[in-house]
Design a protein around this nucleic acid. Structure first.
Lengths: 350, 350
DNA sequence: TTGGCAATCTGTAACGTTTCAGTATATTGC
DNA sequence: GCAATATACTGAAACGTTACAGATTGCCAA
């Protein structure tokens, strides 16, 4: 093809990337010494260390990842495992940015490992572990009894989950307090005089389904309101399904006067359903929704929102995984993000 | 830590990953032969080849990435370079899924390389090339005269751009025909009797800014409509800025009766601005907007949309990069996606 | 003087792969 | 019957790194 490499003598203006050998030649030292000097090993003289590091910086030395990986097994890779069909859209972009933010000044790269609805969620994790493709893994859509977490714990590979598990096993996680979200939402609606509340839940198998449902139920009985069940509809369902089901529900005799939604996209469908049935948001029914980017108030200014920060989640998850890799006890790498309260927007004209 | 590796005899139930050496031992062949047999080299006997491949499959052999990478320089990595602040949200998730879809049954991994507003966009690309961290690169936010494309072309590293360049250099790209989008939008609005049209453009420096503006201008004169300039506002501006500017524009004597928006998020702001000024969408003004996920019609059913498929873009870009890596001529790896026309939604009750 | 020891530095091997330069055996041509 | 050649295989070297097991030097105590 186009290999016009100028193959002059070794030390002449070779365009190749510098290696330890290059540094060794330039400093007149052995490669071992150079290797150690660069990582501040104790048996290297102070001056030598400085000299090597100076030269390394000057010529822009960067360790060859393949060399390190082959020799040590360290990949310097964090893998984010994602479901390519069911993740919340903004989740993907925000969590990626959160992760990259944290690993930016580390040698780590982020690889995205996908899996589809039809696959066993354990597949990508098994692949990563078996091929030793990552030093750490981040998974989402965590389940109370999560085979992936159990598997990685068994294999001893550092990981963090977005969402908690409930298996009596300790591992790093970051979670949003969905119990608090649902409870606050109920209280807020009750405070507005709403009495018959409905909940559009997270997907039934996931951990935060329980948290959300529990927060909803507990607060319901606390404020003495009643539930209008949405049945099996969750935010994983299609826009059309949620919309139709909402309209159906609104046309009943006993219809909800308050709805709580666990995701912004579902909320769009809910509002559409409400209006399909001929009711008006803010008058006939109020809706509290989680959102991860600040768009719902543009959609309908009557919407009440609770913000969940996925970028923060990404950062926390990355920090946790790096921490575990670095030797920190996994039990101390858990964090829970509290909702900042229900936010109502005011229209310019109001 | 927990290294309870059972270090029995070589051939006994060693838990380590199989390597070529393992295969060589099991088949009684040399590692060279095994290596060649696995890649269908011509100088290997047919039966030997089959035997080796069978055993390899049986014990689940997978080549060690570090070994291959160190020896050959091949990373089996595609890098997607993203701006962590200015990409369209759904773009990130969709394009990633599109890419992963294509590389799923290849040995390739996808790494996400971020850069921020404050950095030179060339930085991450330079890093990737200098450290040899990827076999191929995908970039977005392409400019007519794009230093990144020029740089990678000089260095001979395969890449593909989302959006075309205009430097007289040939390289793979995938682009949405934004000229056609803007032109069709204008024609559609003109067909509805709209005469004073405004355009919320893409960011001024990017390639598709020109395409969009040109399509808009050409169609304007074609249908004999006039432009109400939005000035420097682009979809990169904040929701609030776009909203205020729209309201401002709508309050003028000569206000637009049709607006074209290059992104869904901007459209939300535009509609808010329209309503801030006391006008009604669909009556006083019509809006045609690009969208990449099917949500705008839930927002306001009067909105007119043109769909852009970012997952397709991701797939096409991945295919292009892989093609180039595989030796296909870069000039034949270019694709342009045509808009499917302006879509109006019908409300159930209409 | 000698032995011991700390402080620095070094060569070799190994990680798993592919490539280069062979070697051994069978087959062909004449 | 012998060289030439094709077929099928092999060992050694190399990619860049780190770990192991020394080597060299100077200094100090005995």
């Amino acid at each position: 093809m186009d290999k016009q490499r100028t193959k002059k003598t070794e030390e002449a203006s070779a365009q190749k990337r510098p290696t330890l050998k290059t540094l060794a030649f330039m400093t007149g030292l052995g490669v071992t010494t150079v290797s150690r000097a660069l990582k501040d090993a104790p048996e290297i003289g102070a001056e030598t260390r400085r000299r090597v590091q100076l030269v390394a910086k000057q010529i822009g030395y960067r360790p060859n990842r393949a060399g390190v990986r082959l020799r040590t097994g360290k990949t310097n890779v964090i893998s984010l495992v994602l479901n390519t069909e069911q993740e919340i859209m903004s989740f993907v972009s925000d969590i990626i940015y959160g992760v990259t933010e944290v690993i930016a000044d580390t040698p780590y790269h982020l690889i995205v490992t996908p899996y589809s609805r039809s696959q066993d969620p354990l597949d990508p994790v098994r692949y990563l572990v078996e091929t030793g493709s990552a030093d750490g893994v981040i998974i989402s859509r965590t389940q109370p009894n999560d085979p992936r977490a159990r598997y990685m714990l068994e294999r001893g590979i550092p990981f963090a989950t977005h969402g908690r598990t409930d298996m009596g096993l300790v591992h790093p996680y970051h979670d949003f307090d969905n119990y608090a979200f649902a409870a606050e939402a109920v209280r807020h609606l009750a405070g507005m005089g709403r009495r018959r509340l409905a909940l559009v839940t997270p997907p039934a198998g996931l951990s935060y389904y329980r948290h959300t449902v529990d927060g909803f139920a507990d607060a319901l009985s606390e404020v003495g309101a009643s539930e209008v069940p949405f049945n099996t509809i969750s935010i994983d369902h299609s826009i059309e399904q949620i919309r139709m089901r909402t309209a159906q529900l609104m046309r009943r005799d006993i219809r909800p006067d308050g709805i709580i939604s666990s995701a912004a996209a579902a909320t769009l469908a809910i509002v559409a359903g409400i209006e399909d049935a001929g009711f008006k948001l803010g008058r006939d029914v109020d809706v509290v929704s989680k959102q991860s980017s600040d768009l719902l108030h543009l959609f309908r200014h009557e919407l009440l929102v609770v913000n969940e920060d996925f970028r923060l989640a990404g950062s926390e998850l990355a920090r946790s995984v790096l921490g575990w890799i670095g030797g920190t006890a996994p039990g101390s790498l858990q964090s829970l993000s509290e909702p900042k309260g229900v936010v109502a927007y005011r229209r310019s004209g109001d």
